[in-house]
């Protein structure tokens, strides 16, 4: 197996006395979708925020292309090619697609003027690459569907150099049809082959549809990991549903 683009070794994150991550290992390969699953409070958010440079780890080590890195800010993580697409997407509804795409990283001409035509063209092309033909990039984002907004945020992260794309529950809070749109987008990004995707989800079916590799978290620890082939469908379902917890619950029900 080739060297993973991003590798996490025995990552520990403590908030005061509370241990959110307790020695997590993770390997993220280019051209793969790595599904990160776990219940609320399992440590998914802490893990991705640590990878995105929001939190500094209390222990363990992150490697990018085999080299150890220390992210002190989200800017460091972005510079290392880690792009995070949060649930709120960091998108402004009242502004146009292009203005959102280049927000904070506008292309400037003389006197700080915007190269609007060029930016329109790039925004259109970059979104087309991952599957949305948005003919009018001057349209306000507020008029786009949730799925289209996800695509915008993903296309933006890729255009500005993301090699690892962290998608924080991109399918939650969306309707059925839009969920499918997002999954298609994920598949298209995967097909490029040069970008690794960390796909955080609650949804077993979604993770099975697009995932190549899985990591299950519970209480800050990895309780199961492997490639699609290594894990049987049944196993995924058991781990998703809470595994041991369910067995315990069944036992309690039986005693009632």
């Amino acid at each position: 197996m080739a060297e993973p683009y991003l590798r996490v070794e025995k990552l520990v994150k403590k908030f005061g006395p509370f241990t959110a991550l307790n020695g997590v290992d993770l390997e993220i390969h280019a051209g793969e979708v790595h599904a990160l699953l776990g219940d609320n409070g399992a440590g998914k958010s802490t893990l991705i925020k640590t990878l995105a440079g929001v939190h500094e780890p209390s222990g363990g080590q992150i490697y990018v292309e085999g080299k150890p890195v220390n992210f002190r800010s989200p800017r460091d993580a972005t510079a290392a090619g880690i792009g995070t697409v949060y649930q709120d997407l960091a998108i402004n509804q009242l502004m146009s697609v292009t203005r959102n795409f280049f927000m904070g990283r506008e292309m400037k001409g003389a006197f700080g003027t915007l190269k609007m035509d060029e930016m329109d063209k790039i925004a259109h092309e970059e979104m087309l690459k991952i599957g949305i033909d948005f003919s009018d990039p001057t349209q306000a984002v507020g008029t786009m569907s949730g799925g289209q907004r996800q695509t915008l945020a993903i296309a933006r992260a890729i255009y500005f150099g993301a090699k690892v794309l962290i998608l924080d529950e991109p399918t939650s809070a969306l309707g059925q049809k839009q969920q499918m749109e997002v999954l298609k987008t994920i598949k298209r990004v995967r097909a490029r082959g040069d970008i690794a995707i960390i796909f955080i989800t609650h949804n077993e079916i979604h993770s099975k549809l697009v995932g190549d590799r899985y990591t299950f978290l519970a209480l800050g620890q990895v309780i199961g990991a492997g490639t699609k082939e290594e894990l049987e469908g049944q196993d995924i379902r058991r781990l998703m549903a809470g595994g041991a917890d369910i067995a315990q619950l069944e036992k309690e029900f039986a005693e009632m």
Partner: peptide, 15 residues
């Protein structure tokens, strides 16, 4: 525009 629309997302994008 970005600042007035959503300060946090503007900041997250480096504005």
């Amino acid at each position: 525009y970005a600042t007035g629309d959503n300060k946090e997302s503007a900041r997250a994008n480096g504005v």
